[in-house]
Simulated scan of single mutants.
Amino acid sequence: MTSFAATPALETIVDFALSHETEWPRSMYYSDGAYVGNVEWNETGPWTEIIGPVAERGGPAGVILHRGDRVAEWGDADRPDMTFSIAKSYLSVLVGLAVKDGLIPDLDEPVRARVDGPYFSISHNAGITWRHMLQMNSEWRGEIFGKDDQVDHYRQIGVGADNSRKGQLREVGRPGSHYEYNDVRINALAYALLRRFEQPLPEVLRERIMNRIGASNGWRWEGYSTSWVDIGGARVQSVTGGGHWGGGMFISANDHAKFGLFIRQNGVWEGEQILPEDWMKQSLEPTPTLDKYGFLWWLNRGCDANPKLPSTAFSALGAGGNCLWINPEDDVVAVMRWLNPADHQVFLERLVGAIAR
């Protein structure tokens, strides 16, 4: 696909993105048959089976919006691709809708107060709140859809992550005491949210947000072959917070950009406040257990903050080099697909410099 940039400075940004593609194979499987996620996270043992759909990825793609105007685009920005953990930030926004609807009247109320069944009923999980689940410090313990939370014990993410201990059993603490990036716990949150809406989460997202903001019909949000549940007598699939074992959100750069603009506008579209007015403010407050994390959003805050980028900037990040970056200070929304994660910060620093010219 052709690319364009509104200024010579942005042209260099586009060239950088096109020339720094992720090392992940486009098939999503290495030559020995290993799934990219299993290799990325050094995953071995009884919970490695891929149980959701996987699709071959496209090449580098992206979109940059400045003050709502499209100022750069590269690759196939209309191609729906797996987006891995960016789905978590969409899930966070759906929690905001549930709060607005009164389905979750208090984020500090235990999830078990409104979601019955086994996942939040054991004594250790009984005190887990919606806030804990959003902050990734719930210390939820158990198995859901055939995956045990132990699989992500000691997990690290990001460039240079050390996952040599990943999957070793860790003694979990009280809810709210320890941050751990754990996809099984996110799947438990998605299930709990499904139980509150009593409607498939992709339908809620499509009806309440994506159709409103003019997103395409090409995106989809998948669960696992094991995640079908009964909701009001109907068989419904509970979705996942990423593509760790397949599944997750398959979406284009253009649809990400529209969603990012919606978030940049504080959940307002065409004059209507769709999200609670204070939802994004709450979502972007650093958590007590990780100062660069909010409600399933990554912040440029704390000891790891990049001083060359605005402190108010925040991101939805997905493995393999997927990023939705929102910079309120400069009114920028940027989507990068399949950009080598080691080059993300350089890309963003150059983007800030190009916009400032």
Rank of each mutant, 00 (worst) to 15 (best):
I157Y: 00
G173V: 12
A161P: 03
N163I: 12
H153P: 11
W130G: 01
Q156V: 02
S138F: 11
R165W: 06
R170K: 10
M133T: 14
D162T: 04
G176Q: 02
I144S: 06
S164N: 07
Y179I: 12
R141E: 15
L169C: 03
V172D: 07
R155D: 06
A161V: 04
D162K: 05
Y179W: 14
W130C: 01
S177L: 05
L134N: 14
Y181T: 15
I157S: 04
Q168W: 14
F145A: 09
F145T: 03
M136P: 12
Y179V: 07
G142F: 15
A161K: 05
G127Q: 06
Q168F: 13
K147A: 11
R141P: 06
E143A: 15
D148C: 11
D148E: 15
A161Q: 04
S138K: 02
V159L: 05
W130N: 10
G146W: 13
Y179C: 13
Y154Q: 07
F145P: 08
A161G: 03
V172M: 13
R131A: 11
S164P: 11
G158E: 11
M136D: 03
G158W: 10
G160C: 05
D149C: 00
S164W: 08
R141D: 10
R165K: 14
G176D: 09
E171L: 10
S177I: 12
N182H: 08
G158K: 05
R131K: 08
G127N: 00
N182A: 04
F145Y: 11
N163P: 10
N163M: 09
R174W: 01
V159K: 08
D149G: 07
T129C: 04
R141C: 12
A126G: 14
E171P: 08
M133Y: 11
G176T: 06
Q156W: 02
G173Q: 01
M133S: 12
P175V: 01
K166L: 10
R174K: 14
I144T: 02
N125P: 00
E171R: 10
R174I: 09
M136A: 12
S177C: 07
G176A: 08
G160L: 03
M136W: 02
A126L: 08
H153C: 14
K166D: 08
A161L: 09
G127W: 00
V159Y: 02
R141T: 06
V159S: 08
N125G: 01
H132E: 06
H178Q: 14
H124Y: 01
D152G: 15
S177Y: 04
E180H: 14
M133R: 09
